[in-house]
Every structure is written in structure tokens, then in C-alpha cells.
Design a binder for these strands. Structure first.
Lengths: 195, 195
DNA sequence: AAACTGAACATTTTGTTGATTGTTCATCAT
DNA sequence: ATGATGAACAATCAACAAAATGTTCAGTTT
């Protein structure tokens, strides 16, 4: 049964190459199949749909983002500084993605449109990092105590939505977004402080 | 020259009826014209384009919203309470608009897409109210001083974007939004407090 | 001269057709 | 029996033509 897992990987690789080169909509199942010298029908023995391949592709790249977030969270310094840095890094990352590769952006759009549950799961994972920083901040006596940290993290996500999906507001000027994020994070930061 | 202003009003009325009944895209210039027993060409002596009629229509309804905001801002109570109420009222208002009339929603979408300057002006007006409440809060010794209140108001708007354009996140569940807004406003409120 | 018209023009939308593509399944090969 | 195929099917897309619509303007009316 390891055979099967290997084929799944090969499909993922071939599809990934196509996705990144030509975008989601411009890569066809038959192209992926012929790259691997197999039939289109056979693909469906490994993935239930094209969208599932895309989701698997995104999952495969999650670790990069996770690592990025982990780096900031685990870095030294006060929880307050890390919290700001965390959001700054995410903004720069997503903006860079959009800017340098319309193809990956299209992929991301397709997934979050057709698979909202996936996007929600990603937010939930991000919240784990947020909660860790909040805990640290409370431990160091910087932030106020709070009985539900995941909920608090959720509210921080609400307040920073604008910077998470810059596309939605068709504001593609990173310098404007940077300034706005800084101001918004200042506000949130003060709201978290112990008094 | 009062003749002209009167015709402009009649056009606005006729267009308004159509917009609200059939939506922006489904009302044609020739329909508006024939409602008023005039030619299409004549409309252009009063408004440079269809979109300008729509904008004028929106402007005519601005006073309702302004009044709504004014009511909250001028109501008694602490600036903090009014600030929360202010956002709650806006959320309920926009959500109601979307919910009860797809037609008006389409109009709003068309304007903010084709006339981003108009949407920005609206935000600027809203900020005037925000600044007033911030000033009040500072005066009563509740909020911390701040050297640029308009900028601060801008940041509050950034943090509450999600509740201003609920459509963008295709979250149409008002109860979820209510809860999220409450939490977000709590956070912002604490961030404004004097320490 | 000023107000207005409606045909003309250019752009957008709509409808239609054929090709493409995601998906399934009867069939074949191992 | 299991793995794989590729023709068949349905849904979607692309391209083109036709219709509708926003806008302009020469010409008519007042």
C-alpha cells in the first residue's frame, strides 16, 4: 500500500509544477495525467477531484508558512513585539505571494472560494500561535489576563482581517497597508495591556 | 434656473423608483427618460452619466445615515458606550440593507466599484463622528490623549472593516457578526482607555 | 439662442454554438 | 480480483453574432 502513497505524491508533484507555471484553471486533468503517462480516469483513484489535488498542494506548502510563523513566535523579545512582528510578516508574505505570482494567487482564491472550511482551518492554526504569544504576554505580566484566549485571538483576527485579505479591498499599495497595520496593531496592543 | 434644478429632482425621483424596484443594471436610461416623457439625450443635459444619477441617488439618501449616526453620537452616555453603539448601529443598518433589498445592495456595489472616491468620502464623513466621540471620551477623562484623532479614527475603521463590508467575507450570519463585533470593540475600547 | 429630440455610434450584455474539461464507468489487462 | 484505460457524459468555457444600452450630436422646435 506504499505504492499508492507514492503515486499520490507523484501526482501532487506534477500538478504542482503545472499549477505554479500555468495557474489552476489553465492546468487540465489530462495534462497532469499525460505528464505521468497515465490516464485521466486513473487520477480519480487517487484524488476525488481536481480541487482536492489543489488542496493537497496547499497543505504540502503549509509547513513553510507554519515555519515562518513559528520563527516569529519562538523568537526572543517581548510578546508585544512578537505580536506586531507576526502580523507584519504575514502581511508581507501574502502581499509578496499576490504580487509575484498571479498563479499561486489564483490557486489560493479557488481554494478559499470552493473550500471555505480549509481557510477556516488555517485561521484556527494561526490562532494557536496567537494564543501562545498571548500566554507569553500574560506570563511576563505585560498583557491582562483573559479567560478565553482563543476567543481573544479570534477577535484579533477580526480586527486584522483587512491585512489578511488585501485583495478584497482592492488596495494593492503595500506602503499604505503597512502604515495602517502599524496603527491598528498599536491600538490592539494597548487593548491587551495590563492596567 | 430653478427650472433646471426641478428637472434634476424629477429625474432623480424617476431613477430612484426604478433603481429600488429593478436594480441598477436593470434600469435603462431610455426607461427613465420615457417615465418622464423626455428623450434619452435630454437626460445628459442634467446628469453626465447614469452612474452620476446613481451617485446623486445615494447622496440623497446620505442624510438618513448621517442622521442615524448623529443620533448615536449626540445621545447621552459615556463616549465608550456610544462608540460601541455607533458600530453596532452601522452593522445592523448595512446588514438590513443587504438582507432586505438586493437591489439597493447592487446599487451600492456599483457605486463603490466605479466610484471609489465616493466610498472614501463616506468613510471620511464617518470619521468626523468618530473623532467627536473620541474628543468627548478624552474630555471626560476616559480615553487617552492622542495627537492625531483623525488618524486614530482611521485605525478604528481599519479594525472594523470586516463589519463594514460583510459581503466581502461572504459571512451573511448576522449573529456571528454581532458577536465578533462586540469582541472586537471590546479590544479597541480597552486600547483607547486612559491608563 | 436655448431646449430638446431621436437617430447614429460605440460599448456592453446576452444568447448561442462548438469545443474543452472534469468526472464516471464499462471494459480490458495483469 | 485488482489496476488501469479511454470512450462517454455532463458541466463549463470560449468565441462569435446579435441585441441592448449608454452616450453623443446634428438637426429640429420653441
Amino acid at each position: 500500500m506504499d505504492e499508492k502513497a507514492e503515486t499520490r505524491d507523484r501526482i501532487l508533484e506534477a500538478a504542482g509544477r503545472r499549477f505554479e507555471h500555468y495557474g489552476y484553471s489553465k492546468t487540465t486533468m489530462s495534462e497532469i495525467a499525460s505528464d505521468l503517462k497515465m490516464s485521466t480516469g486513473n487520477l480519480y483513484r487517487f484524488y476525488p477531484s481536481k480541487l482536492d489535488i489543489a488542496e493537497a498542494h496547499a497543505r504540502a506548502h503549509e509547513c513553510d508558512e507554519d515555519e515562518m510563523m513559528e520563527t516569529v513566535v519562538a523568537s526572543g523579545g517581548s510578546a508585544g513585539v512578537r505580536l506586531q512582528e507576526f502580523h507584519r510578516v504575514i502581511l508581507e508574505h501574502t502581499f509578496k505571494l499576490i504580487d509575484e505570482s498571479k498563479k499561486i494567487f489564483e490557486l489560493a482564491q479557488a481554494i478559499s472560494r470552493e473550500r471555505p472550511a480549509y481557510a477556516n482551518r488555517r485561521l484556527a492554526i494561526e490562532r494557536v500561535y496567537l494564543v501562545r504569544m498571548l500566554e507569553d504576554g500574560i506570563a511576563e505580566g505585560l498583557f491582562d489576563r483573559h479567560d478565553n484566549l482563543d476567543e481573544l485571538a479570534e477577535m484579533i483576527q477580526c480586527a486584522t482581517m483587512k491585512f489578511r485579505y488585501p485583495q478584497l479591498y482592492n488596495c494593492f499599495r503595500i506602503d499604505v497597508l503597512r502604515r495602517e497595520l502599524e496603527g491598528t496593531m498599536d491600538l490592539i496592543y494597548k487593548g491587551l495591556l495590563k492596567r
